[in-house]
Design a protein around this nucleic acid. Sequence first.
DNA 1: ATGACTAAACCTTTTAGA
Length: 268
Amino acid sequence: MSIKLATWNVNSLTVRLPQVLDWLQANPVEVLALQELKLTDDKFPAAVFQQAGYQAAWFGQKTYNGVALLSSLPAQDVVRNIPGFDDDMARVISGTFALGGGESPMRVIGAYFPNGQEPGSDKFEYKLAWLKGLRDWVRTELQQNPSLVLMGDYNITFDDADVWDPEGMRDQIHCTDEERYQLQALLALGLHDAYRLFAQPPKSYSWWDYRDFGFKRNRGMRIDHILISQALKARARACWIDKTPRKNERPSDHTPVVLELEMDSEHS
DNA sequence: ATGACTAAACCTTTTAGA
């Protein structure tokens, strides 16, 4: 018995809705976190997802950002953005799911981390401040929720293994020491990079530039991550990147990352 | 290479993404 959770930056839900529905049909999951909806709340296709068998909680905004949680069970205690961190952008949505039989309920945070644009820019400073705000909040969330998942588009690589051209990207956005330090500081709260808990193919990425045949040449980066708490690490069975949707017509530049957890109902 | 693609909006041009 197992459950699956996934994250996918769809780069416009309006454009990608048919692809999301197709993917869910082929890949049923208990929770799917979406980023970059790029639509306002009134445009969110909740009824369409309902028809497909998924509950939804969403947090949109015009043109940019926007996040959602699709789920087989309804989310409880939904929170939008980071309590204690003032932000006029819709980047975070969290909910609690009564998954796992007798296990504690699962707190799932879906997040679209700031891009940062360029080291030294105002947007980079915002990214660092946002990361600090997130960390302070996740610390308290972990104290209250032993089973916690933090997944989404991090816009940060862990190390050179996550980058197709480490030399060319040295100290560039997504690859700076400051960003990677912040990512390690998240791990230091007691979180684990689910993807690296398992053997993975070399040159595995979750994003490829639209330009210059980036996907075809596998010129990408691994910037979409699923971080899990200690309690969930013990139940993790597999984690993979599903490149299939990146081969679609009009694809998102990101592709889904999936986590499989064992549901140990016998220990309830 | 101040490039390339894609998406959205103040839409034939700009902003942002990563």
